[in-house]
Lab assay of single mutants.
Amino acid sequence: VTLFVALYDYEARTEDDLSFHKGEKFQILNSSEGDWWEARSLTTGETGYIPSNYAAPV
């Protein structure tokens, strides 16, 4: 399992994006889409796309 942590807060701009807060942890589901990764929040259980430059490996 690849775990990442949010470096900044992010507010979803589309219904496919995932809103999150700094410090929140994610499981990365798909990182082959370039700058946007499909991720599941370990806090909320929700799935959506996150900007890859807002996350770092745990």
Score class of each variant (00 low, 15 high):
H21K: 15
D17A: 15
W37C: 04
L7A: 03
E24D: 15
G23Q: 01
E38M: 15
V58M: 11
D17H: 15
E15F: 10
E46I: 11
I28H: 00
A39I: 05
P51T: 02
S52F: 09
D35M: 10
F26W: 02
F26G: 01
W36S: 06
T44M: 01
I50K: 01
S32A: 12
S31Q: 14
L18V: 04
A56Y: 09
Y10Q: 01
V58T: 08
F20P: 00
L42H: 05
K22G: 03
I28R: 03
P51M: 06
P57W: 05
A39C: 04
Y8T: 06
V1E: 14
L7D: 03
E15Y: 09
V58E: 09
G23V: 00
E15K: 13
A6H: 01
W36G: 03
F20N: 00
Y8G: 05
Y49D: 01
D16W: 15
N30S: 12
T47E: 08
I50G: 01
D35L: 12
Q27R: 08
T43F: 09
F4T: 04
L29D: 05
E33C: 15
P57L: 08
S41D: 03
W36Y: 12
W37D: 00
S41R: 13
G23L: 02
S52T: 07
E46A: 12
S32K: 11
I28G: 00
Y8V: 07
Y49M: 14
A55C: 15
I28W: 02
G23N: 05
E24S: 04
Y54N: 03
V1Y: 14
Q27W: 15
L42P: 02
A6Y: 01
T43R: 13
L18F: 09
Y10V: 01
S52L: 06
E33F: 12
S41E: 02
F4N: 02
I28N: 00
V1G: 14
V58I: 13
T44R: 04
H21I: 12
V5K: 04
P57V: 07
A56R: 08
E15T: 12
T47C: 10
G45L: 06
A56P: 03
W37Y: 09
K22M: 08
E33D: 15
W36D: 02
A55Y: 04
A12E: 03
T14W: 13
S52H: 08
L29A: 05
Y49G: 03
Y54H: 09
E11V: 14
K22N: 03
F4I: 08
Y49F: 13
G23P: 00
V5G: 01
Q27N: 07
Y54I: 07
S52R: 12
A55S: 06
D35V: 09
L7I: 09
A12Q: 06
R13Y: 08
P57F: 06
G45F: 08
A6W: 02
A55V: 15
Y10E: 01
E33Y: 11
K25C: 14
T47A: 07
S52I: 11
R40L: 12
S19A: 06
G48W: 03
I28Q: 00
L3V: 14
F26D: 00
T47K: 10
G48L: 02
G34P: 14
A56N: 06
W37P: 00
I50M: 05
N53I: 09
T2V: 13
G34Y: 08
Y8I: 07
F26V: 03
K22R: 10
S31I: 13
G45Q: 07
D16V: 13
G48V: 03
Y10G: 00
V58P: 05
D35R: 08
W37T: 03
K25M: 15
L18Q: 01
H21P: 06
I28V: 09
E11F: 09
S41K: 14
A12R: 07
L7T: 04
D35E: 13
F26K: 00
G34Q: 11
R40G: 01
T47Y: 08
T43P: 02
S52N: 07
Y8A: 09
T43C: 14
S41Q: 05
F4P: 01
L42Y: 06
E15I: 11
V5M: 08
K22C: 08
G48H: 02
E24M: 05
L29E: 05
R40T: 12
T14R: 14
Q27I: 15
G23C: 08
G45C: 09
L18E: 01
T14I: 06
S31G: 10
D17G: 15
S52V: 09
S19V: 03
G34W: 09
I28Y: 02
E15L: 12
L18I: 10
N53L: 09
I50P: 00
A56K: 10
L3R: 05
T2M: 13
R40H: 07
L29V: 08
L18G: 01
S31K: 14
T14H: 15
E33M: 14
N53M: 11
S52W: 11
L3Q: 08
A6F: 01
Y10F: 10
N30A: 09
I50A: 00
L29S: 06
D9L: 03
L3K: 05
L18P: 01
G34S: 13
Y8F: 12
A12F: 02
R40V: 11
W37G: 00
K22F: 05
D17E: 15
K25F: 15
T47W: 09
R13P: 07
F20W: 01
L3C: 12
A39S: 03
D35K: 10
S32F: 10
T14V: 07
K22T: 07
H21F: 12
L3W: 11
N53Y: 12
P51W: 06
I28A: 02
A12G: 12
D35T: 10
S41M: 07
E38T: 11
Q27E: 15
L18M: 14
T2Y: 11
D16Y: 15
F20D: 00
I50H: 00
L3P: 06
A55G: 06
T43A: 11
R40C: 08
Q27V: 15
E11H: 09
Y49T: 07
T47I: 14
Y49A: 05
L42E: 07
T44P: 01
A12K: 08
E46C: 14
V5F: 09
E24I: 03
L42A: 05
G48D: 00
F20C: 03
D35Y: 13
V58Y: 11
F20V: 04
L3D: 07
E38P: 06
